[in-house]
């Protein structure tokens, strides 16, 4: 297992957003998370990548506990200086790309490897150029984010996350902010990564993509995982009524 999340609880101002959620991802697995907005999908991703603190449960990366619940029932994280290691295991691609506008494309990708991971500039730049090539935008290395289309920016964001060599990459609705004609180029990249056995968790509304690319689909609603399993089964033969209702809306 790359990541295990057990009995995760999360609430915002009394509102329960995640209710006792447990799930894990194996190496090389691609998991899609679907569900209506407000179902807790994004929060789950944000908890997994430590942007939000859980209120209960445990998070285990590579067999090591990053957070657990103590006897008083409070979630306890590992000390600050150990967090870096856990952050290094995971990467996150945002809906809004969140590239650094004042850095060139190349620097967006190399800055963290150099200054966070302490890699050499040469190595970081070689990695970055290789990734940009893979994303089909090697010619944009010296450009700035504002000069790129949304689809190109999102591919840079993916390259930036991959440059950190994470064990697992999370995507938070990576195509939702894009014009429809630009989603294809981003999905193509993710599909390519799946073929290379990159471990990924993708929160998405692109049902055909989820069906085609993922090994497993999770349907979330109301802060719980309502149903999960093989994509074909979940999409074509959902067991739960709520899943059926949700999918029906998308088929229209």
């Amino acid at each position: 297992m790359i990541i295990e999340m057990n009995n995760i609880e999360k609430h915002f101002e009394g509102l329960e957003v995640l209710k006792d959620i447990s799930f894990g991802v194996d190496s090389g697995e691609v998991v899609s998370i679907i569900g209506p907005s407000g179902s807790g999908k994004s929060t789950l991703l944000r908890c997994a990548t430590f942007l939000e603190k859980i209120d209960g449960g445990e998070i285990i990366y590579m067999g090591q506990k990053a957070a657990h619940t103590d006897e008083q029932g409070n979630a306890v994280y590992v000390p600050h200086h150990e967090m870096g290691k856990f952050r290094g295991y995971c990467g996150l691609v945002f809906q809004q790309f969140n590239l650094f506008p004042h850095y060139s494309i190349l620097k967006n990708i190399t800055d963290a490897p150099i200054h966070v991971q302490g890699r050499s500039r040469d190595e970081a730049e070689a990695t970055a150029m290789e990734l940009l090539g893979k994303m089909g935008i090697a010619d944009k290395a010296d450009a700035y984010p504002y000069q790129l289309s949304g689809g190109q920016q999102q591919r840079v964001a993916i390259a930036r996350a991959l440059a950190m060599k994470p064990e697992i990459l999370f995507f938070d609705e990576p195509t939702s902010a894009l014009d429809p004609e630009l989603t294809g180029e981003v999905l193509k990249v993710i599909r390519q990564l799946a073929e290379e056995k990159m471990t990924m968790v993708v929160v998405t509304h692109e049902m055909p993509f989820a069906k085609a690319v993922s090994n497993r689909v999770l349907f979330m609603d109301g802060g719980v995982i309502v149903e999960q399993g093989d994509p074909r089964e979940v999409f074509e033969n959902p067991k739960e009524e709520r899943t059926r209702q949700f999918l029906r809306v998308f088929e229209q």
């Binding site: 942007l51 990467g91 945002f94 969140n98 650094f100 963290a112 966070v116 930036r160 996350a161």
Partner: peptide
């Protein structure tokens, strides 16, 4: 989002402030 992107990439608080 700028803070979050930096946090996920592992920048410290000081680095985030000074660099980003």
């Amino acid at each position: 989002g700028q803070y979050e992107a930096a946090e996920v990439l592992g920048y410290t608080k000081t680095q985030t402030f000074m660099r980003i």
